[in-house]
Amino acid sequence: MITSLTLFGLCAVLGSAVGFLAGLLGIGGGLIIVPVLTSLLLWLKVVPDTSVMLVAIATSLASILFTSTSSALAHHKNNNIPWHIAPWVMGGVALGALLSSFFAALLPEDYVRFIFGISVLLIAYRMLYSKEKAEESVTLPKGPLLSSITALMGALSAMIGIGGGALIVPLLSHFSIDMKKAIGCASACGIVIALFGSVGYITSGWHVFELSAGFIGFIYLPALFGVVSTSWFMAPIGAKATHHLPVKVIKRVFAGLLVIIAIKMLMS
Rank of each mutant, 00 (worst) to 15 (best):
M1F: 06
I2A: 05
T3G: 10
S4Q: 02
L7Y: 07
F8L: 05
G9M: 13
L10M: 14
V13S: 01
L14P: 03
G15L: 01
S16Y: 04
V18M: 00
G19T: 04
F20K: 04
A22Q: 00
L24G: 06
I27P: 01
G30P: 03
V34W: 03
V36Q: 00
T38V: 02
L41P: 09
L42R: 10
P48G: 02
L54A: 05
L54N: 06
S60V: 02
S60G: 04
L61P: 00
L65C: 01
S68G: 02
T69V: 05
T69W: 03
A72K: 00
H76G: 10
H76I: 14
K77I: 12
I81M: 10
P82G: 13
W83G: 07
W83L: 12
I85M: 13
I85V: 15
P87E: 04
V89L: 03
M90D: 14
G91D: 12
L95W: 07
G96K: 09
G96Q: 13
A97R: 12
L99W: 08
S100H: 14
F102V: 11
L106V: 10
L106C: 10
L106D: 09
L106M: 11
L106G: 12
Y111Q: 11
F116G: 07
G117K: 05
I118N: 03
I118L: 13
I118E: 04
S119L: 06
L121Y: 06
L122Q: 07
R126G: 02
M127K: 06
Y129V: 09
Y129M: 10
K133V: 09
A134G: 14
T139P: 11
P141C: 10
I149P: 02
A155K: 01
A158N: 11
M159K: 03
I160E: 02
G161N: 09
G161Q: 13
I162F: 03
G163L: 12
G164N: 14
A166P: 08
V169N: 03
V169L: 05
P170Q: 02
S173G: 08
S173Q: 11
S187T: 14
C189D: 12
G190M: 13
I191S: 00
L195R: 13
F196R: 08
G197C: 12
Y201H: 07
G205A: 13
E210R: 15
G217C: 01
L221Y: 09
A223F: 03
L224R: 01
F225Y: 04
S231K: 05
W232K: 10
A235N: 06
G238D: 02
A239N: 11
K240F: 09
T242A: 04
H243Q: 15
P246D: 13
P246L: 12
K248F: 06
V249I: 06
K251D: 02
V253W: 13
V253T: 14
A255C: 01
I260S: 00
I261H: 04
K264N: 13
M265P: 05
L266M: 15
L266G: 07
S268A: 05
